[in-house]
Design a protein around this nucleic acid. Structure first.
Length: 551
RNA sequence: GCCCCGUUAGUCAAGCGGUUAAGACGUCGCCCUCUCACGGCGAAAACAUGGGUUCGAUUCCCGUACGGGGUACCA
């Protein structure tokens, strides 16, 4: 068989050689140790937490080392393409503060290693495929779907490994004339790798993984398809060609790729290239909905969808912080030691990544979110909440928009000092938490405490109103409540009540709860005095009068 | 079926042959306190399982179970 002739027959229009592309895409000039990483999503328009998770790893590895992080659109499966998906990808990552240095963009590519969309790189793949044919390492295969499933059935019946390999690779040794005749007859064909693996006694290959250490696997034996009948490459071939010519140093991808690693290794070897350092991440998991079983995979589960967190009003910084704690087991510890350092100061490493899948933990996210939000200024919180409301809760926008002066002190309530309140978790919860500051949302939600009968409540509110002086400071204000409590038979100190409960109806806490109910409508809230200062005397008086009248 | 990968408290996780088996979230209790939150202190709670190897296994090896992934002209 004359492979040169076959290569010309198959790819008459390809004139460039692999060497030409080596020149077109030279080694990158980067500082020592700089890492080149990439995100390669398929343009389905669906981004999930796993994508973000991987993107963080890529981003950190590249930017921590002075390297390059680029975006490559992997659209070799035309069935998957969704219009506008590239923008969705860029936008949703941008929301979480992840930016690319080069690659596909909203308005075309940036960078010297493009095109960055696989469907535009057909010539490159074909050139490499032609090279493999010329070297006798790839061949055209005319097997039809039916023939392939017949082979599979036979293999299953014989309990053999399924697939096209060795003696089942019917087209491996077609003569030039047979190939020519098939093509002339218009038969469709794919290009298959002529695997060098020994199916009966595969050799072991060792591949170093940045997360999992050294992996030991059997070599590939399958004559994997590298070019589909359309001339478009499969993922395997595109990955090898692209990551070589884009000079990727670290490939971060999900563990679902682990089992095709031997294919990639064989392809790299056959091309005579060095393969990048693979980093196979563990999959994020979810609890099963019915019998809250163990772990379940993702896809379409709402909380794994990236847009979910934005819709739920979680601040991107909180999601980032949460992801980082999942990403690197020593991050939390570092964060406790460096509460105010920027994330960039943390030395991220793939070695500290978990090899087993983590279950998403909403409690943890909420807790982390509180810690993150407490450090964000009221002005930023305001802007964040407003933006969220505009997108997802337009009916509350009028309450918020243009009222920054009113809202800033509210958002800062109790956040001063060394032990600030951590009341806020996400945007909707923030709004709910402060909703009593809006007259249109204020309502009395809780009922009087057991210890205070209705007539006492009326008396408390009456006396409170009579003695109310908006100019009182916090101390004077509370002393007055103590007096009222004492006069009506309630302990002025909770301890007194606790020690001698039979002597009192209740304690000052119960008395102030009545006032709290009148002013904020709930039995729990931050400091009432501060709230009153923000509400203003008129509204305080009117709320108390109204509540007293309703008892 | 076959092939990979994994399995430490409810969850996330340190741990790399000898530890009282860290820490965080959640839960519970106490303290602080006008409520809640914050903060502080404390408690309950774990090495899937059976065999080896070893003076000694959570740590190493093999089997079993369980979970995940792959077995496509999908990525």
């Amino acid at each position: 068989m004359d492979y040169d002739k076959l290569a010309e027959l198959l790819f008459p229009e390809i004139t460039k050689t692999p060497e030409d592309y080596e020149t077109i895409y030279p080694q990158r000039e980067l500082p020592e140790g700089a890492k080149v990483t990439r995100l390669g999503p398929s343009p389905t328009g669906f981004m999930h937490l796993g994508n973000l998770y991987g993107a963080f790893v890529d981003e950190r590895l590249a930017h921590q080392s002075g390297g390059v992080f680029y975006l490559r659109i992997e659209d070799t499966d035309d069935k998957r393409y969704v219009e506008g998906a590239v923008d969705v990808i860029i936008d949703s990552l941008d929301f979480f503060g992840i930016e690319f240095d080069e690659g596909a963009g909203r308005s075309g590519d940036t960078g010297e290693y493009g095109p960055y969309t696989q469907s535009e790189r057909k010539d490159i793949y074909q050139c490499m495929a032609k090279h493999l044919v010329r070297e006798g390492m790839a061949y055209p295969c005319f097997l039809t779907e039916e023939e392939i499933s017949a082979i599979r059935e036979k293999q299953e019946a014989n309990k053999e490994m399924p697939g096209i390999y060795g003696r089942y690779a019917a087209c491996r040794d077609l003569s030039y004339e047979e190939v020519e005749a098939n093509i002339a007859a218009g038969k469709p064909y794919v290009l298959r790798l002529r695997s060098g693996g020994n199916i009966d006694d595969p050799e072991e290959i060792k591949v170093r993984d940045g997360i999992r250490g050294t992996l030991t696997m059997p070599e590939n034996c399958q004559d994997t398809v590298i070019l589909k009948a359309t001339g478009i490459p499969t993922y395997h071939f595109a990955h090898v060609v692209d990551d070589h010519f884009m000079r990727t140093t670290h490939v971060v991808r999900g563990e679902e790729w682990l089992s095709s690693l031997p294919i990639h290794v064989e392809l790299f070897k056959k091309m005579g290239w060095r393969w990048p350092l693979y980093c196979h991440t563990a999959q994020l998991m979810k609890l099963d909905e019915n019998g809250n079983k163990r772990k379940l995979s993702k896809r379409k589960d709402p909380e794994l969808r990236l847009g979910y967190y934005k819709e739920m009003g979680y601040h991107p910084a909180a999601v980032r912080e949460y992801l980082l704690t999942i990403l690197n087991s020593n991050y939390e510890e570092w964060r406790m030691a460096h509460p105010d350092s920027p994330v960039d100061d943390f030395a991220f490493t793939t070695k500290k990544m978990s090899t087993s899948g983590a279950l998403f933990d909403l409690n943890k996210l909420n807790d982390i979110s509180k810690d993150v939000l407490v450090k964000i200024s009221a002005a930023d919180l305001y802007a964040f909440m407003l933006q969220w409301a505009k997108e997802y809760r337009s009916e509350i926008v009028p309450a918020i928009e243009g009222r920054e002066d009113y809202l800033l002190p509210i958002l800062d309530l109790g956040r001063e000092g060394k032990k600030p309140r951590k009341d806020f978790v996400n945007a909707p919860q923030m709004f709910e938490f402060i909703s009593y500051f809006f007259d249109e949302y204020f309502k009395v939600e809780d009922s009087l405490p057991q210890e205070v009968p209705a007539e006492d409540a009326k008396k408390i509110l009456g006396e409170y109103l009579r003695g109310y002086d908006h100019a009182d400071d916090n101390g004077v204000w509370f002393d007055k409540i103590r007096e009222i409590a004492g006069r009506l038979g309630y302990a002025e100190r909770p301890k007194d009540f606790k020690n001698e409960p039979e002597k009192y109806k209740g304690h000052v806490g119960h008395v102030s709860e009545v006032i709290r109910l009148a002013v904020v409508g709930r039995s729990q809230s931050p400091d009432i005095w501060q709230i009153q200062q923000i509400l203003g005397e008129e509204r305080v008086r009117s709320r108390i009068e109204k509540y007293a009248a309703s008892i």
